[in-house]
Design a protein around this nucleic acid. Structure first.
Length: 577
RNA sequence: CGGGGCGUAGCGCAGCCUGGUAGCGCGUCAGCUUUGGGAGCUGAAAGUCGCCGGUUCAAAUCCGGCCGCCCCGACCA
């Protein structure tokens, strides 16, 4: 392919709309263009790379025995009502009406659709296990789309759904997908970390996320070096090794004046006590009923954990009026002593003595609080976010906090959907059983961008050979030189005949422009054709991201060398897998 | 949805406070010169100044409303 026949609108300047490196580079390298918030067109280069990722996903899913299907993106509302998820996912679903006034949604995910299909088509244990997957566009009304393809309203996803006769069999299906995912991401040149994760609105028993470590990642995670424990911050449990008994722990509790001191910071400073000594008391509405949540003053509440501990569907911080009504004091002075609400305390507060809490009176706090002596806690749970330096819940190690981009998520779903939608089969005894399900997602378009986020330098993208839009770029240093053109065209043609994807930069531009664009676009193997080396009967070979200077290769060996370089790049990729 | 910011040529921006001819850099097109890491000169095309309304002799500029985008937060398979 000639550059002059392609559309590769590279940008010299950084577009204002892009914040993170991968987003900037996708725009600058002419891979994508924005249509609206969270909506992107793939230009030829971006689409080529995307198709490479898809091809790897297909190969590995097929290899793992999954069967490719294609389901509609548009769904009748009724199917979502059958599982109650029309309400659960209501906010993220795009809803539309057809001219008959029928209610339709644009699918944010496809559990209902595939389970409905399986309920009709699979009836016997002899037909199990089966795993169906598709690569398709998903629609989610994200509150805030950002970072280009990272969080878009419309994005490409590979989703797979496994159906098994029982939990043991389902576990095998899960393992097969887990391993397929490892291979997929390795083949994309990504270093990923697998973490325990929250199942969220998917429901189900447990799940693992595949994270691409990156500073710009939207997800926080912690990991423990010694034992390998790793979990999404939404789920991670950190063990505190901090003290729970503070000075004057044995004294009776007493009221102290704390005029206008409402925040942990203010009270901590005013009373000259570390924030950890304070007990933060937050009033929530759990399914409309007020409850109090207690956590150490230096900790943040993890509302997902609270909701799970309480078993409530809807959890929100109470408004000021509710707080005043529940505590009898203005906001900022709530405390558990004498508070007539269900009290849910974070585990780390166990044994807290000599602590400080709000007094449920304006401008007052209570000191020397002994949680066991002075308060009747309803339940202790893990209710806070883990953080850097916390103890590992599995071993003696210490947790390290990192950031990551979630590119894959595998769930053990169980029988939730199969029961609700009647995906039942007859076992050998003729008894009806619900299929045990798993579901497995890969954000395909996001994965593409994650590769760039992880593999770039100041000059541009460094594609792994496996998903590069082209494997080789043949660069005419002076496109007006006849011999340059002849050699470039001949090498390009030979390689293309051998099935190599070549981009030939035949633009009549200055060399600098073409070198810069080559680095930006990031094609792995660059073949420079210029008068200087042609005079020596050679061309110049350079691997993107490796060594600064190009290697001169005799003309008659050029194609063989290029093929060798391609092979080597694939080998390196496999070796790191 | 709350807070902040921005909307002027394809991209990046100035002009707005203090109303009066719409500008700069890059890119694009043409010509000449140049040619190994984002060239030089000359010329040219290209803008309903986000939209609607108001004030005014006159609005990119002042006022009101709306829309869009970006950032932070809340939220999120």
């Amino acid at each position: 392919m000639r550059w002059t026949k392609q559309l590769i609108p590279t940008l010299r300047e950084v577009p204002l709309e892009a914040e993170i490196a991968s987003h900037q580079l996708m725009l600058r390298a002419g891979m994508i263009r924005r249509l609206g918030a969270g909506l992107y067109t793939f230009l030829p280069l971006g689409f080529r790379a995307l198709k490479k990722v898809e091809a790897i996903v297909r190969q590995e899913m097929d290899r793992a025995g999954a069967l490719e299907v294609l389901m509609p993106a548009l769904h009748p509302r009724e199917i979502w009502d059958r599982t109650g998820r029309y309400d659960v996912l209501s906010e993220v679903m795009f809803k539309i009406e057809d001219r008959q006034g029928r209610h339709l949604v644009l699918g944010p995910t496809h559990e209902e659709i595939i389970t409905d299909l399986v309920s009709r088509e699979i009836n016997s244990y002899r037909q199990l296990p089966r795993n169906f997957y598709q690569i398709q566009t998903k629609f989610r009304d994200e509150i805030r789309p950002r970072f280009g393809l990272m969080r878009a309203k419309e994005f490409i996803m590979k989703d797979a759904y496994s159906f098994d006769v029982d939990w043991d069999a389902a576990e095998k299906s899960y393992q097969a997908m887990y391993e397929a995912y490892q291979r997929i991401f390795a083949r994309c040149g990504l270093r990923t970390r697998v973490v325990e994760a929250d199942t969220g609105a998917m429901g189900g028993k447990s799940s693992h996320e595949f994270m691409v470590l990156a500073e710009s990642g939207e997800d926080g995670l912690v990991e423990c070096g010694p034992c390998g424990y790793a979990a999404n911050l939404e789920r991670a449990e950190g063990v505190t090794r901090g003290e729970t008994v503070f000075e004057d722990a044995d004294r009776e509790n007493e009221l102290v004046d704390t005029p206008n001191m409402r925040t942990i910071e203010e009270v901590s400073g005013f009373l000259k006590s570390p924030p950890a000594r304070l007990i933060k008391t937050l009033i929530y509405r759990a399914d409309e009923k007020p409850v109090a949540v207690l956590v150490p003053g230096d900790r943040d509440v993890n509302e997902l954990k609270v909701a799970r501990a309480l078993g409530c569907r809807k959890l929100e911080l109470a408004d000021d009026a509710t707080i005043e009504e529940a505590t009898g004091a203005p906001v900022g002075f709530a405390g558990p002593v004498g508070l007539d609400l269900p009290l849910y305390a974070d585990k780390k507060l166990r044994g807290y003595r000599g602590a400080i809490t709000g007094a449920n009176q304006a401008d007052r706090h209570i000191v020397h609080v002994d949680l066991e002596r002075d308060v009747r806690i309803s339940e202790f749970h893990d209710l806070t976010y883990a953080r850097n330096g916390d103890g590992c819940p599995r071993c003696d190690g210490t947790l390290v906090e990192k950031r990551g981009i979630e590119v894959g998520h595998v769930f053990k779903l169980g029988t939730k959907y199969s029961e609700q939608l009647g995906a039942l089969y007859l076992d050998p005894e003729g008894k009806q059983q619900p299929a045990v399900m798993g579901c497995y997602g890969i954000g395909v378009s996001r994965t593409l961008q994650a590769v760039i986020e992880q593999r770039h330098d100041k000059d541009g993208i460094i594609w792994p050979i496996s998903i590069a839009p082209y494997a080789v770029e043949v660069l005419m240093i002076n496109a007006q030189d006849a011999e340059t053109r002849r050699v470039a065209e001949q090498i390009t043609e030979t390689l293309e005949k051998q099935g190599v994807e070549v981009l030939m930069d035949d633009r009549d531009e200055r060399p600098g422009v073409k070198f810069k664009d080559a680095d930006l676009v990031g094609v792995p193997i660059r073949v420079g054709i210029g008068e200087r080396s042609l005079a020596k009967g050679a061309v110049e070979l350079k691997i993107r991201g490796q060594s600064d200077k190009a290697k001169e290769v005799p003309l008659d060996q050029a194609v063989a060398e290029i093929q060798g370089a391609i092979r080597q790049l694939y080998e390196e990729l496999n070796a790191s897998a």
